[in-house]
Write a protein that binds this DNA or RNA. Structure first.
Lengths: 188, 188
DNA sequence: GTCTATAGCTAGATAGAC
DNA sequence: GTCTATCTAGCTATAGAC
């Protein structure tokens, strides 16, 4: 009989899912308990700080995801430049399920504890921004232009996701993602 | 002694403010009561459907705002084309307080009743989209291009607002708004 | 480490006086 | 039309058995 019945990574996945779908205020302990299969008292055992600590933990996992699936890929010397960006964008499509899934960073950046999460959220966006900048500079753009284009790419991702979901049309998201390589100076 | 102590338009403003700052789930009846200066029972007298009806009412007001401050301005024949767009963009800067204020449409598009509000939110975005398209076509762009550029402009507004607030840098929002006239085919 | 049970509070919502 | 007072259900969080 194992002591840990539910694996931490499964709990993490489910917590992320609930916060992403319902936001911080909408993610009740009851929902989090049902999704993870752990009773509320068990969740408090793993996260003594309660809901706030769970969300913070989710944000740390997302940061790790950005480091592994974006930053590391974009700086992987074993891949050609175009393939690195293609893989990073593939990861982003997966993260947002081609427009079906909300952005967890955005969902946690609103709500009653948003100030508490601000730093962790900004850190994730900065990883992405630096990655896109790196690509743009490798594509020959000067640093200030590369940074502006990287910001534009992030704006397109966030904005297109919102409009895709508001207008129930995922092609908005798909089109925006497809335009990013050219935006970052990639020549076809 | 007036029967109505608090004017409806003041109540509407405060309700909008609370929903915009805290989102649907974060906007408690207590917060809404304190902000409006009306006790909870009085709010229920004005909005028998409770919080859901208040948010729906807020969305109808926003739709009116878009019709008056965006649609009417953009189609105002007494103004030159560039001035119409400039005034509409000024209204948008005001609406979002140059990046300090969340988008009420976005804040209501997430949360436990998001499906209920979806149609009203999409209607507002459509007014803006049609207005931007109109400008772009008047600037000589073909319809399909105009529609794509209009969508891009809305994506830039929503995305830049999110990143401005996440990174605490309102120049992101300002820069994106400034770029919209050129995006919609305006020649300087 | 997980559970049942429950405390203590706040949520949305209502009754009825004025 | 607004209020005080209150209801019930849900919330976050904890105590203590196993």
């Amino acid at each position: 009989m194992p002591v840990i019945k539910v694996f931490p990574q499964d709990v993490d996945r489910k917590l992320t899912e609930v916060f992403t779908r319902f936001g911080y205020d909408g993610a009740s302990m009851e929902l989090l308990s049902q999704a993870t299969g752990l009773k509320k008292a068990s969740l408090y055992h793993r996260f003594p700080g309660g809901k706030k600590e769970m969300a913070q933990h989710v944000l740390l996992n997302i940061r790790t995801w950005f480091l592994e699936r974006i930053d590391a890929v974009i700086r992987d010397p074993s891949l050609p430049l175009e393939a690195r960006l293609a893989e990073a964008l593939k990861a982003i499509r997966d993260l947002f399920e081609d427009g079906d899934r909300n952005c967890p960073l955005r969902m946690l950046s609103a709500g009653s504890e948003s100030a508490f999460f601000q730093e962790a959220i900004a850190a994730c966006f900065t990883i992405l921004s630096d990655g896109f900048s790196h690509i743009a500079m490798e594509n020959g753009l000067p640093e200030n232009v590369a940074k502006a284009k990287a910001m534009e790419a992030m704006i397109n991702i966030q904005g297109s996701l919102i409009l895709s979901r508001a207008l129930k049309d995922n092609t908005i998201f798909g089109t925006s993602i497809s335009a990013i390589p050219k935006l970052l100076g990639q020549r076809n």
